[in-house]
Design a protein around this nucleic acid. Sequence first.
DNA 1: CCCTGATTCGC
DNA 2: GCGAATCAGG
Length: 229
Amino acid sequence: MSWTDERIDQLKAMWEKGLTASQIAEELGGVSRNAVIGKAHRLGLQSRPSPVKANEAPKKAAPVRKPAAPAPEAEAPRAAAPVAAPPPPARPAPVAAPVAPAAPAAAAATDAPPPAPQPRIVSVGPGGFLRQGPGDQQAPIPPAPPRRLVPAKPSAEIAGKTSLLDLTERICKWPMGHPGEPDFHFCGEAVNPGFPYCVEHCGRAYQAQLPRGTRRPPPPLPFGGPRVR
DNA sequence: CCCTGATTCGC
DNA sequence: GCGAATCAGG
């Protein structure tokens, strides 16, 4: 896969939305998490709270990989006030939880209660639209931020059950129940390394071949066997 | 262990 | 420019 304009746009949008590199990589497809991170940095998108970089001390330079060039660092003239990094794009909390407005009941009584700006209706025109006086000119037009639509993931799956979306390479993919039924899910156990199933289900999925002629009771099939209807 | 982002460096 | 490998913190 290559970085088309389209994909770069998606990357930017998701990155700024706070999605993790893994999620972005998964969403885009065909790229790894590292590829996403690398591209993001190359694009100049930068610096989301990194687990590994919480402390950025100018002193105590800790060159990690290869101190190839231990250049004599010419310290920039440090003014009295340490130059603060550009803080405006501070939006570190993409919490999606709809926050209910805190009850200001007690606080409101104590201090200056800001009068609620009730919309002053001047008159109502035919058809019910509101007329505005000349002094009422506002900017009711929403900023209309360029939003990129992103496919919403089916939010609530069966609680606690392993859904299709939860499957990874290390989760047992043994189906439980019948697809399409409300409680259909997957085993979800830790996988038997190298296999798509956990140890128990590997035992069900892979059975030693017995010599011909030896009749055995048929093994239980996945999906609980053929549907009976 | 799993996850995360940052960085390096060979291609 | 790209991204795997590596690092390092949570």
